[in-house]
């Protein structure tokens, strides 16, 4: 019983991280209909740059975080303006191939420059683990969960409560009409892609302070993020949260009771089943909204 509670707690924490990791992906897909196969590499770059800023340059975590996220936003903006822009309207295949190429490039360029070793970002919070009854959790994990919640809410508010968010939603509903009413749509596309990139990078840096950053981790992150997003329905924020928690919990219990070696299989089997039987995600109603 106590073991089950610990699995539950671990699952919820991992699930919150999964949800956070998938946010950028679901944002870019929900608004732009672009499936970003380089998502995991943006996440990875967030972690690696975070390590450079803290462990190498010696900045404190908060400053480093802001700098890294801003830098990644610029990168996302450039990727959209100089690459995705050129194939916009040429169908899904071009953007899929483009982002696959980008992901291969980013992963291996980082591997070439930084090497395969794990890079630990110093955690902003340290100290003794908390004992909640039979359940043990570290403070940094709880803090990361809190930051995850803040980021999810923040992204949601940006899209639904601000002017730029309104312009985004207008652009993706009808780009031509948005253009005619004076919205500079190419900037909106780039801003959305940049926002998705920033979300991916902040998740990457945050989790690099708990686990560690690694150049080769992008593929796995992309895969997990896809699992989360497909579980919850592509483009849905609440769906990403639910999907993250479902994946985190299933993995925690599968790993705890069945076998640790095959944990990763849980998500893939779920994806295959969901795409077969409920291709719009478990919560199809939510999937309608961005």
């Amino acid at each position: 019983m106590n073991l089950a509670l610990q699995f539950l707690a671990n699952g919820l924490v991992t699930g919150a991280f999964y949800a956070l990791s998938a946010l950028g992906l679901t944002l870019i897909f929900g608004l732009m209909r672009v499936v970003n196969f380089a998502h995991g590499e943006f996440f990875m770059l967030g972690g690696v740059l975070g390590w450079v800023a803290t462990a190498v340059l010696g900045l404190d975590f908060a400053t480093a975080f802001v700098l890294v996220v801003a830098a990644m936003g610029v990168l996302g903006w450039l990727v959209d303006r100089f690459m995705i822009e050129r194939v916009r309207g040429h169908g899904e295949e071009s953007t899929i191939l483009l982002t696959i190429g980008l992901s291969i490039f980013l992963a291996n360029a980082t591997l070439y420059l930084a090497g395969p070793a794990p890079m630990k970002v110093p955690a902003p919070l340290t100290g003794k683990p908390l004992f909640l009854g039979p359940v043990v959790l570290t403070k940094s994990r709880l803090a990361a969960v809190a930051v995850s919640v803040v980021l999810v809410l923040g992204a949601y508010l940006v899209i639904h409560r601000t002017r730029i968010g309104r312009a985004m939603r207008a652009t993706f509903q009808d780009a031509m009409a948005a253009k005619l009413s004076g919205i500079r749509t190419e900037r909106i596309f780039a801003a959305t892609f940049a926002l998705g990139t920033m979300l991916a990078a902040s998740a990457g840096m945050l989790l690099a302070s708990i686990y560690s950053a690694q150049a080769s981790v992008g593929g796995l992150v992309s895969l997990k993020a896809f699992v989360v997003v497909i579980l919850g329905g592509m483009g849905s924020f609440p769906g990403a949260i639910a999907g993250g928690l479902i994946l985190g919990l299933s993995e925690a219990f599968w790993g705890g009771y069945v076998s640790t070696g095959t944990v990763d299989i849980v998500g893939f089997v779920m994806v295959i089943l969901i795409l077969l039987f409920r291709p719009r995600g478990l919560f199809s109603l939510n999937a309608q909204r961005a």
């Binding site: 690459m83 191939l97 190429g101 980013l106 591997l111």
Partner: peptide, 16 residues
């Protein structure tokens, strides 16, 4: 790594 870096660039260049 260098090889795959180059491959990634080639894929992007071909698509574009």
């Amino acid at each position: 790594e260098l090889r795959l870096t180059l491959f990634g660039l080639i894929v992007m260049a071909v698509v574009l």
